[in-house]
Design a binder for these strands. Sequence first.
RNA 1: GCGUCGAUGGUAGAGUGGUCAAAUACGACACGCUGUAAACGUGUUGCCUUCGGGCUUCGGGGGUUCGAAUCCCUCUCGACGCACCA
Length: 390
Amino acid sequence: MIDKHKIDELLTRGVEKIYPDKSTLEKVLMSGKKLRLYQGFDPTGDKLHIGHMVGLRKLAQWQALGHQVIFLIGDYTAMIGDPSGKLSSRKVLTHEETITNAKNYKKQAGKILRFEGENPAEVLFNGDWLGKLSAVEFLQIAGNLTYSQVIERDMFQERLKLGQEINTSEFLYPVMQAYDSVAMAVDLEVGGRDQMFNMMMGRKLMRQMLKKEKFVMTTKLLEDKQGVKIGKTEGNSIALDDKPEDLFGKIMAFPDEVVTVCFETLTTIPMEEIPKQNPLEDKKRLAFEIVKDLNDANQAKKTQEIWENTFQKKETPEEMIEMRGNTLMDAVVSSGVVSSRADFRRLVKEKAITNLDSGESVSDSNIIPNSGTRLKIGKRRFGRFFNNSS
RNA sequence: GCGUCGAUGGUAGAGUGGUCAAAUACGACACGCUGUAAACGUGUUGCCUUCGGGCUUCGGGGGUUCGAAUCCCUCUCGACGCACCA
């Protein structure tokens, strides 16, 4: 049974562009043909973040329509490092490191993508074929692409202009990624807009080696008005296995203008039901949906309540971590709430630490509060002090 | 192999004997304004401190000097040029 509406959503929702073009792909899908498709994830870190979720959602949509989805782990490509969007080379990882990083990928991805039951998604590692290539074989593959095809890439051009280096490994990276498509003989590849170049190389390589046309679907990136990726800045990245409260809070800190695109790319709410009324309420709904999908509805409801009580009604949360020590400074630092004693002194000076029981800010770094005193440190950290000596 | 240049804080990137815990920008943190928003403004941003100061940092090691991120030697890594290439 072919559902025109669903196919239309598949081809437009959260989609930036389709190569060679949308109507060709549409025709294929309308014919009822089931495609074999994939998205690659390079395990350069051990967590999947919210940017990855965009691709996972798209893969899940394909899966729901009965297509064969491959969750590809780039254990080999991650060792080299994709030069996309980077003006400097990335540090090289060992294979053990990438495998370790990838250990929990399936579990994290499993929150969105289904790996069991009917038509389960398949997990593959590109080391399985890249690791078996001999140097000669690799060069033969690379020979299907030309220097000018690779060097035309914007980012390479930019680096050349700035007189910066391009490692040969980085230069050849697109070849490795392109070969993934060939090795799996897929019909289509999904990836973020920033992966467009690499995916197009795969398309070219496939045409050369397999005489086959691969479709490429690029998804929207989560970025703010300045083009800065959301939820990926240092120390602020949003991982799929973040604690619900953290997840909720981080989403609430998003700028308003990305809420709509987040609904589109990260949730399953039907397009026509995406709320656009009250920015605050809309954002809460967004946070709820994401927490619900990554955990469960009860958890999401509870998390939202905690958030509303703590940050909107300014109530003191019921649960807070224990901080034990002889002085407040000891306790706060040894519990890891604050990174150093100097940092603690700074926070005191900035009146950032409040004794919730007296309602006053802490003004003396060496204070020893009563055991059991509840404290607020900064705007989102809470803790309860317990005196070790008493 | 020879030679030249380079390696600086979470990142980018100044600094070329004291005035350097190291400009500036970004990031991060805090406060203000708010809707825990965002934007904006202000401040903070190595560690320890009895708040006087002390200690450790500019690729590693050694040296010169009263004093080194800065000069010299050496090692490691990288870039560039030259040479070699049966």
